[in-house]
């Protein structure tokens, strides 16, 4: 085809914006964001932290879970402006700089607790936070499944994720975790 004249670039959108400063995975940043921008979109598309995934944007699937000021939360149900001043951790923060996997990541690998990997970062962040927050986690079948409920997975059927939670508890030396 003959070369076409390129279309004019669109006019800028008219969203109101605000400046926010926050710490992401230990790094302080300041950015101007649209006030309606979801934290999930902010992390992924403005910071390039694409390990946080988006699966439903209504809080049901859990793919977008990150740790906000020490508590796991849905980044799709949080506005970026709400995170002003917050300390945020994403899946990219888990492994050591030399690539050594976090105990929960390692357990997922050993137990084949992931297939397509799309839901995985959400499970990891929920679980990492659960172990941080819960000195004596309930490692019964029902206890583990209750903690996992809140994250949907369509590939694994969950059983290997349950096994990975037990394995992670072992790797983390959680009391009573030894199988």
């Amino acid at each position: 085809m003959s070369k076409k004249i390129r279309s004019a670039a669109p006019k800028a959108a008219t969203d109101s914006t605000a400046e926010i400063s926050l710490t992401i995975n230990g790094e302080a940043i300041t950015r101007e964001v649209s006030t309606r921008r979801l934290l999930s979109d902010f992390l992924r598309h403005e910071l390039g932290l694409t390990g946080t995934h988006v699966g439903c944007e209504h809080g049901v699937c859990g793919c977008c879970t990150v740790i906000i000021d020490g508590w796991a939360g849905r980044s799709c149900l949080t506005l970026a402006v709400q995170a002003d001043g917050a300390d945020i951790r994403t899946v990219e923060s888990l492994a050591a700089d030399d690539g050594t996997l976090h105990a929960v990541q390692q357990a997922f690998h050993e137990c084949h607790a992931l297939q397509c990997g799309f839901c995985t970062p959400g499970f990891l962040m929920s679980l990492v936070n659960y172990f941080e927050r819960t000195p004596s986690p309930d490692l019964s079948e029902d206890g583990i499944r209750s903690v996992l409920a809140g994250n949907l997975c369509r590939c694994t059927g969950y059983q290997n994720i349950v096994a990975a939670v037990r394995r992670a508890a072992e790797l983390l030396n959680v009391e009573g975790a030894k199988s």
């Binding site: 992924r44 932290l49 694409t50 390990g51 946080t52 995934h53 988006v54 994403t90 899946v91 990219e92 888990l94 492994a95 690539g99 996997l101 990541q105 997922f108 690998h109 992931l114 990997g117 799309f118 995985t120 970062p121 990891l124």
Partner: peptide, 14 residues
């Protein structure tokens, strides 16, 4: 696994 576990997967929107 290691790539996916570290959030280094590259799905279309990534």
């Amino acid at each position: 696994d290691p790539r996916l576990l570290k959030g280094e997967g590259a799905y279309v929107d990534d």
